[in-house]
Each structure stands twice: as structure tokens, then as C-alpha cells.
Design a protein around this nucleic acid. Structure first.
Lengths: 131, 131
DNA sequence: ATGATAAGTGAGCAC
DNA sequence: GTGCTCACTTATCAT
């Protein structure tokens, strides 16, 4: 058995006979639309209004999908950037660590040069202070 | 005017009369299903098969949406973690920089102590080398 | 009335 | 045949 359904999106010639297309139905202002609808049979007017709502909804749905898509896109891009930044910082860190080691060494060397060890014990103490 | 539509989701009593519900239709194996369908009128069999497909699709759609949702969720969480990591690294960086400055200073101080300036010019040169 | 979104459905692709 | 995803429709919510 088949059931009776509302007409939905099949415009079955109404719009064609009125020389109106979807774009116009959708973009017309409410004022313009009402003026137009008053010159039509109530059923046809209702049909057009319903069609307009559906068309707008279609647009909203598309926007929603686009938003969702670019949301994911943005997050992905952002992630790449953050990862890149992390790698950069890790590099900087490594560089700084090396520099730090270097200067500690230089300091230590200079210190040894400055205060030559007088005994095994004192040498140890001196080295400790610059670790 | 109204148009004739396929029956879609209104099961108009068929399933009830056969004592089958959506869950069973969906989860039955193909083998079981075929056995069942052979004992039915062709139209009813077709209806059940179509219904099964629709039910499965409904599930797929839900899965798809869940995936999409958790994708965004994961990306967001990941972003937070990355940002946190960056802040951590920046802190480390700052610490290292300060340590570095400190050691350079100590080196410089020790150097000044070791090789006292003999003239204004030579003092400048010494300072330059440790900046 | 308008805009947004979740859920269901159909179409069409890939395996 | 099964699973997936896109586009569309509907229902529903908020403004």
C-alpha cells in the first residue's frame, strides 16, 4: 500500500507556470513575497512559503556542514603549527643547553687555571662549585 | 495535488503481524533472513529487506556522526596538550637563558679578576669576548 | 520569521 | 551486500 505524502520538493509545474525559480523564491524579501502570495490561490501560496522555508533550510544545512568542515581544517592546521613550534622550541632548548654546558666548561677551565690545585681534596671542592 | 510516495519507514503493521521488530530485522544474519523471507509474500520480503537497509544506514549515519564528533574532540584535546607543552618549553627556555646569562656573568667576573685591566682599551676587548 | 543543528533518509561510491 | 559519507528534509530549539 502506498501512503499519501506532502508534496515536498517536487514543484510539479507550479513555479514554472508562475515563472518563479528557486533562487527568487528564496531571496525575495518578505514584503515582496507577501505581495506576490496575495495574488495566488491559497494552496499555491502555502506551497511557495513551504518551498521557501525548505530552500533556506537547505542553505543553513550547507553552511553548517561548511562550518564543521573548516572547523576540523583549522584545528588540523593549528595542530601542525603547534607541532612545528614545539620542534622549534626543542631546538632552541638544545642550543641553549649546549651553550650552557660550554660556558660552564669554560668557567671551570678558567677556574682551574686561576686556582691551581694544592691538594686532591681541594681540587674536588673547586670542581663541585661549578657543576 | 498530492503525489504517491514509497512507504519508507511506516511499517503499517507488517512487522507487527510477523512478530518481528526492527532490532531483529537489523541484526539477523543474511542466512537467517533469507530463510525467513522465503516464507513470505514477495512484496513483504522486499519491504523487510528495504527496511533492513534503512535501519543499517541509520546506524552507519550515527557512527559517522560520532566519529566526526570525537575527531573534533580529540583535536581540541590535542591542541590543549600541545599548548601546554609549548608553555612548558618556553619556561624551560627562559630558565636556561637565565642560567646562561648567569654563567656568562660569572665567567666574565672571574676573567676580570684573573686578568686585571692594564688599559681602558684592553678592558673593552675582554668584555667583548664574553658577551 | 530566521538561523542553526541533530537525526533520519536516499544516493552513490568503495570494497 | 556492507559500510561510509554527502546532500537533503524534517523536527526542534533559540533568537
Amino acid at each position: 500500500m502506498a501512503s499519501i505524502k506532502h508534496d515536498m520538493n517536487d514543484n510539479y509545474g507550479l513555479e514554472e507556470s508562475l515563472q518563479i525559480d528557486d533562487q527568487q523564491i528564496m531571496s525575495m524579501s518578505v514584503k515582496e513575497l507577501n505581495t506576490l502570495l496575495k495574488s495566488m490561490k491559497p494552496n499555491d501560496a502555502a506551497h511557495i512559503k513551504r518551498r521557501r522555508r525548505i530552500l533556506k533550510n537547505k542553505g543553513y544545512a550547507a553552511s553548517s556542514r561548511n562550518r564543521q568542515t573548516s572547523l576540523v581544517g583549522n584545528l588540523s592546521v593549528e595542530r601542525s603549527q603547534l607541532v612545528k613550534q614545539i620542534n622549534q622550541l626543542r631546538g632552541d632548548n638544545e642550543t641553549l643547553s649546549q651553550e650552557l654546558r660550554g660556558w660552564k666548561q669554560r668557567y671551570s677551565d678558567l677556574q682551574l687555571l686561576t686556582t691551581p690545585p694544592t691538594s686532591t681534596a681541594s681540587q674536588n671542592t673547586t670542581t663541585e662549585s661549578s657543576k
